[in-house]
Design a protein around this nucleic acid. Structure first.
Lengths: 333, 333
DNA sequence: TTGTATGCGTTATCAA
DNA sequence: TTGATAACGCATACAA
């Protein structure tokens, strides 16, 4: 059995109240008893029980993070930023992989509430009405990160996907490309799907490039799907000079496809990605891509959540993206 | 204020004991009161407080995971496996980024103990004597994953680095390579550093290839360091036909270096990596590498830890690696 | 400077 | 089938 505060009190011949004061650095005891108690604590190897403490303080110093998956380097970076800030503020973080599964998400939401976490980060997934209602009912600060929220009470932190996609397409156009294809992520993904397509189309339209429907193929953000989508895209549009991929992984799928077919990047085809995950700088050639400040988003999100916990106001915000120029796009002019 | 079991009891005109029984599905009440209580619970939106529950049950259903960093896809995959199993067993997981920092590790160890986690996974870091003593003192199951432990009470789960490195070098030799360099990770890393060098050297020795000291350069497992080490390695050994990198990232650093210098892989130089992280299959050419079953290690680790928690015996074990043949090594014969 | 007593929200024992 | 009530380990108001 682990020693409790009572054991310490008995052993040191003082009351538990005194021990508690000493442990918590509160005033109200002589130096002599302090020394004595400290000695006993040391001797017994006493450590306060945070569960009991949390119960009386009604504070757990922990937050929960809901993620649709945690095997990607995107999740890892986001978590890294979150954990860092949490640690600085003495918060623990519980990770919850929802697998994009509605039931699991709900279950986790309930679990986190029961565990009395003080706040929840809802990452990379669409915050639908069901979730919103569950969240609203549990009366606990929630913040969406790398995700959009339509609700006043749930602020979000993300990059503006439409603008970023617009910037990517525009970049290609500025480099003289006119025949540009796109490999989008999941078609009906309201976060990273539709908005990026919209931005892409907007850039084309503004430069009077006819947006043929064949110019867009859909994948699932993953490497393999990029490879496959590229096959379909090129079949329908053999004269493409550039492609915008909605994720770096899909962009590398394009690389892989082209490598096999003997299509040289960027000489024969220019490619621009999205995310700027680790793989982007490591590819050959290095991938020009939209840089998302992933870790910083994690940092911002955690900081904002902690503000929310302290009842300080927090506003939704778009974090700035940037275009990371590397070597996968050629200038046609 | 959130409703407590007392509120439910009062509102339903029963005792808290009855509510507790109903909530926990224990026997001891009529169907009528069950219905009534369920109704009130629904109405009030009552959820049991896990903190209070944990206090009386002396069980938190929580484990902690200590990692030296969590921004890589390696950590992400490991976590993925861990979380999956934890979730299946109704355990929550708290993540702790130690940043390879001794003090932080100690602090986290203490925190986890205070939070009464039921077990700890110690990942990817050398379990030194200081840690061991702290762990031994806190009397809680600990298991090392992707790390070695010399202690009977702390089992480990990892791949046999020496054997895997031996297999990598041997593969190169079988393919007819005689002039083989290595880019190792951190020199004094007792887990992924020295053992891999040893395995490499052993393969060379067994085939009567003189292990010149210049044949090994050191990096830090990261992309950039691989790039740089490759520069040094090639300067000292211009006639290398193959290189073994102790991590995929460093292997890609080699790719990058060769791409710039116009050295073609695998035509001019063969490269074999280590880890088989996501980037390996996404590179051009796809990287031949030592496959570590990272996610499975996470799964095994979590399952073993839970066994440990249940006081079931657990043995240390090496998980099998495999050699993933892709296109970065050429057959010289 | 110190101790007593109460409560935090549960579970579980015991009696009814 | 039910209800008091004593823990669980701690913090704190209040009394001394």
């Amino acid at each position: 059995m682990r020693p409790t505060i009572k054991d310490v009190a008995r052993e040191a011949s003082v009351s538990v109240a005194t021990v508690s004061r000493i442990v918590n650095g509160l005033p109200g005891y002589s130096e002599a008893t302090r020394r004595k108690v400290a000695e006993v604590i040391q001797e017994l190897g006493y450590k306060p029980n945070a569960v009991a403490r949390n119960l009386v303080n009604r504070k757990t110093n922990t937050i929960g993070v809901l993620l649709p998956q945690l095997s990607s380097s995107f999740s890892a970076k986001l978590l890294h930023g979150i954990e860092k800030v949490a640690q600085e503020h003495q918060y623990s973080v519980i990770i919850c992989n929802t697998d994009s599964n509605g039931k699991r998400t709900m279950d986790y939401l309930n679990l986190l509430r029961e565990k009395q976490v003080e706040g929840i980060l809802f990452a990379s997934e669409h915050l639908n009405e069901d979730y919103y209602e569950a969240i609203a009912a549990m009366d606990i600060p929630v913040l969406a990160v790398d995700a959009h929220s339509d609700y006043e009470t749930i602020p979000f932190i993300k990059v503006n996907d439409e603008e970023a996609a617009y910037a990517a397409a525009n970049y290609l156009i500025q480099k003289g490309h006119k025949s540009i294809g796109m490999i989008s992520g999941t078609k009906d993904d309201p976060i990273s799907g539709a908005p990026r397509v919209k931005g892409f189309l907007k850039a084309l339209a503004e430069h009077d490039i006819l947006p043929e429907p064949n110019l867009i193929e859909y994948g699932d953000f993953g490497f393999k799907s990029g490879y496959e989508a590229m096959g379909r895209l090129l079949k329908k549009n053999p004269y493409l000079t550039a492609v915008f991929a909605a994720s770096d992984e899909m962009a590398l799928g394009i690389f892989s496809f082209c490598y096999e077919k003997g299509i040289s990047i960027p000489a024969d085809l220019s490619v621009i990605g999205y995310d700027d995950t680790q793989v982007a700088e490591m590819s050959t050639p290095p991938l020009t891509t939209i840089h998302q400040p992933i870790e910083k988003m994690g940092v911002d999100a955690a900081e904002s959540l902690i503000k929310l916990i302290k009842n300080e106001p927090v506003e939704s915000k778009y974090v700035p993206f940037s275009l990371m120029e590397r070597d996968s796009v050629i200038n046609l002019k």
